[in-house]
Design a protein around this nucleic acid. Sequence first.
DNA 1: GGTAGCACTCTATTCAGTGGAGTGCTAAAG
DNA 2: CTTTAGCACTCCACTGAATAGAGTGCTACC
Lengths: 352, 352
Amino acid sequence: MTQTSTHSSAMSLALNERARQLLKFVVERYIRDGQPVGSRTVSRDSSLDLSPATIRNIMADLEEMGLVASPHTSAGRVPTAHGYRVFVDSLLTVRDLGETEVRNLRHQLSPAGEPKRILETASAMLSEITALAGVVMVPRREQVASRHVEFLGLAQNRVLVIMVTNEKEVQNRIIHTSRPYTQSELQQAAGYLNEAFTGRDLAAMRQGLVEEMQATREHMNQLMIAALEMVSESSDSEGDYVLAGQTNLMNYAEMSNVERLRQLFEAFNRKRDILHLLDQSLRANGIQIFIGEESGYDVLDECSVVTAPYTMEGNVVGVLGVIGPTRMHYDRVIPIVDVTARLLGAALNQTR
Amino acid sequence: MTQTSTHSSAMSLALNERARQLLKFVVERYIRDGQPVGSRTVSRDSSLDLSPATIRNIMADLEEMGLVASPHTSAGRVPTAHGYRVFVDSLLTVRDLGETEVRNLRHQLSPAGEPKRILETASAMLSEITALAGVVMVPRREQVASRHVEFLGLAQNRVLVIMVTNEKEVQNRIIHTSRPYTQSELQQAAGYLNEAFTGRDLAAMRQGLVEEMQATREHMNQLMIAALEMVSESSDSEGDYVLAGQTNLMNYAEMSNVERLRQLFEAFNRKRDILHLLDQSLRANGIQIFIGEESGYDVLDECSVVTAPYTMEGNVVGVLGVIGPTRMHYDRVIPIVDVTARLLGAALNQTR
DNA sequence: GGTAGCACTCTATTCAGTGGAGTGCTAAAG
DNA sequence: CTTTAGCACTCCACTGAATAGAGTGCTACC
């Protein structure tokens, strides 16, 4: 109703300390109980020593700034996405993990076993200790080096290409060729590739092959092109992730709407949107938090996503994190995601 | 209240034709509308030309036999699991698929691409056309034959074992050895295995290796044992399945209870129970239907599972099917599952 | 600026009342 | 003996009113 500002203090974007403490209490309490928190509660339980009436005044200011909102006239206040943002950015006191907890996690994430398996473990760990959904992007390496190539002839002009990269991953693919190749031809081709390009990364390999092909006649290049395409395709593919503990999300009251839940799960299956979000975190360098509508995806409206990139040999190769309701325990979740990212990087490096 | 039988007709387990027709109508109508069906409705809409009162009498008989039940005194009747059973076994008239539909399905399930991919397509197809959850067990082959073995030495006494089986699947695994092997040792071992056992199934391979080892000194057997274990492990492993369209289940009213939904989804993730159920169908030989509580698993109380085994080269190697609410369109679902099983078998055979 | 008081709003819950759907039983009709 | 009409009864789903409780905004006072 008032067109001009009545309270200059309410309009100033900088919160005074008291208002900040109030916001902090409201967010913490709402995270704890899931109920709108009213002025009485704050006056009674918070360290602020103020009457409900005063609290109400400050609350009104916070509401005007868009940090809290009330579901209806006579309910308490609930943090908005913006409110959570301020809370997370400048009010939160994270509780670091204890030594024993870290040791515990490291133990579970032992570098034995295949890389894919380690990712799954990490995802399961995240979901288990946070009681949210855990997500781990599979590492995308810029430098994929060929370690070994093998061709196996199948029936009907088809060849099974097997390529071992970076000492770990085994990729395979069936290609169709225009003519049958003999076993010795295949061996010769594989032998050539292995001799010339073992240990060299795929960009170099492609480059080398193109030059080679221009220089010589196009002898048996079909195989090599196919092999190359296979790997470059899978290396610059869309990416993928391992999800765990989706069902945890069903325990939260804000997810009790089956229709919304369905949409969320479909987004998980579709993968595209989630991947896009993780990709953004890949480019950032540190813990990243998307709160509610900030993510830009409707299905994540009531959700927050906390991510951290993880590294192999100093390079960021992937992202992991958790997905849960906006009303999550950021103070616990953030360090957990942080530590897990470090541990995963370490575990992956050790297997090399 | 009555200890002795009052109506002998009500107690006779054999339903007369009229009662059967009534049951049929009730089940069909309930499947269509999801609402308890009352005597008025039957009298009005069914081909039986009887008054509501008569219908009520027959309904009471059906209820006494446990074929229908009423949620409360003044609601209509709802089929019980037992009622569905009778319906499915002896009242159902399945609507076979049209030529064009079958052609359509066959087209989608083209044998190009990797086997795993074909399974995923089949599962997605099932879920899409039935609007239920589709499930396809990965084939378990008794006769896994070695096609090619390769050893690659890694750092720190570790060896990457790659085995190509049955011309298609590529298995790989890292094993830890007690001492480092040179590249030539590895090549020699692989060469020996390939020469001696290519094309022979794994049982024979194991047998042969054991004999060999007893005859000679235990030279480099560690590698071979590892290779063998790897494959036999993966071949007689618990089994696995590909699930699609779980989210479809969230659309059904009987699944609106979030807690039950959670338990169901956890069962999907856990895989054990579902696999056990599929395993049973593997032993049976034809379409198999588990209705509600029949499955023996609490989480599937309100669900039915329709399965059909599929074959490769005449042998049953797996099972596929759908999972949905007991209130599903059996007349459509059954032929779809049936046809898909046949098409999947055909597609898998063609890729060999 | 902080506080007390007060009128007001909105929700959630309870309760009674009502209409409708459907049943079981009984007695009569076929 | 089977079928049907009639009737009393039960239960649910819905409505509207009443109520208690929580919380607010505003105003006036300290």
